[in-house]
Design a protein around this nucleic acid. Structure first.
Lengths: 146, 146
DNA sequence: TGCTGAATATAGCCTTGGCTTTATTTCGGT
DNA sequence: ACCGAAATAAAGCCAAGGCTATATTCAGCA
């Protein structure tokens, strides 16, 4: 049953820009996930080893190593062979930003009434697409409720 | 300045599952975007041509054609050479679902206080990561405000 | 101290989703 | 009716992010 609804499209360049941004976001999402996880492992264990990173991300070791190399290329992490992985200043800053954003997203979802589990799980995907403007609105929204 | 915060991680299998799901979502996101756009173009113009799809998505024509072929492989669309693209039943159903979800996400963001522009733009990325449970919570939340 | 098992790294392959370049087909205007 | 421009399709390239299989290095323990 196909419901007829009024349909309108954004202006072409606007729409193209949006989709482009979404694509970019997806490419940085991976980096953000790695950086956040590495920061967590460092905070908890004092070290972040590729094998742990791989297990946490549900990925094979070589895949993790490849991504870690990309982090190094991008100046977010450092690693010497057979030592653990560490974050650069930039990496640490990114991790902090990502972690705070993650918590805000989870909190907003929770306040809205999303069950804990779903909130945590969905936030993992959602957070990478939350712009600065949206993040600010989220913060204000949370402040209202408290 | 690195702020110390209490950090804890989800259980390993839980976390791996979440990341895995996020990865899967990204692979279906593209299909969803195409299907939604094709539905919109069909509704507005009566036809969806590769060149328009490409322009709207901010992508080269060949890239669009490749993705359209993938849609065909997945049974979501049909297209004969030099004719436009059409949706199958499944494709139309997906388009309907995606469009309704998109509007709900935009509405929720707006109610929270996100500016129109940012809401529309961010929803483009966010919507693909909204689970059924979260979507239900969103609906309830919107109903409350009205 | 040496050896074995675990961790790490490397190599090579696949798919996806971008791109450009080139060839083909369609269609509108004279 | 035709011809040239625009749309479409086809071919071939690239990077990212998966994988398995194969070295290599490390580290703990007998």
């Amino acid at each position: 049953m196909t419901m007829k609804q009024s349909v309108s499209l954004p202006a072409e360049p606007t729409q193209a820009r949006r989709f482009g941004k979404t694509r970019t976001a997806q490419s940085t999402a991976l980096l953000e996930d790695y950086v956040e996880l590495i920061a967590d492992l460092l905070a908890i264990n004092g070290e972040a080893r590729p094998v742990d990173i791989a297990r946490r991300l549900g990925v094979s070791h070589p895949t993790a190593v490849k991504s870690i190399n990309r982090l190094k290329r991008e100046g977010l992490a450092t690693a010497r062979p057979y030592r653990g992985v560490f974050l650069t200043e930039a990496g640490q800053a990114l991790a902090d930003k990502v972690r705070s954003r993650h918590r805000i997203v989870v909190d907003v979802l929770t306040v809205i009434g999303v069950p804990r589990d779903a909130a945590e799980a969905d936030a993992e995907g959602i957070e990478h697409h939350v712009s600065e403007a949206t993040l600010r609105a989220f913060s204000r929204f949370l402040k209202l409720g408290s």
